[in-house]
Amino acid sequence: MRIKEGFVIREVAGQIVAVATGEAGENFQGMIRLNETGRDIWQGLMDGLSEQKIAEKLAETYEVPVGQARKDTRGLLEQMEEAGFLTA
């Protein structure tokens, strides 16, 4: 499982915003608002990291238990899968 190619993330007006181009843009137009953890998870996926690795990095960055970080990561991944942002 990987994130579709073509998402772009930037900070706009103090918000973290993603838009889709290329493969990702075929089925999604518009913008997605992310919080900081969301951005880190999303960026981790774009960098090709595993779910486990992303959760470990989150735990380290935000000084939270790995269990909590895993739950957050899983939660966002499920939402992204439902939205069709992920592909086999």
Partner: peptide
């Protein structure tokens, strides 16, 4: 409106290029 409040409305009317 505060910039953050109207981003979706603006994003919808902007031309989005194919390349990232």
């Amino acid at each position: 409106r505060k910039p953050g409040e109207i981003l979706p409305e603006l994003v919808e009317q902007i031309f989005w290029p194919k390349q990232a």
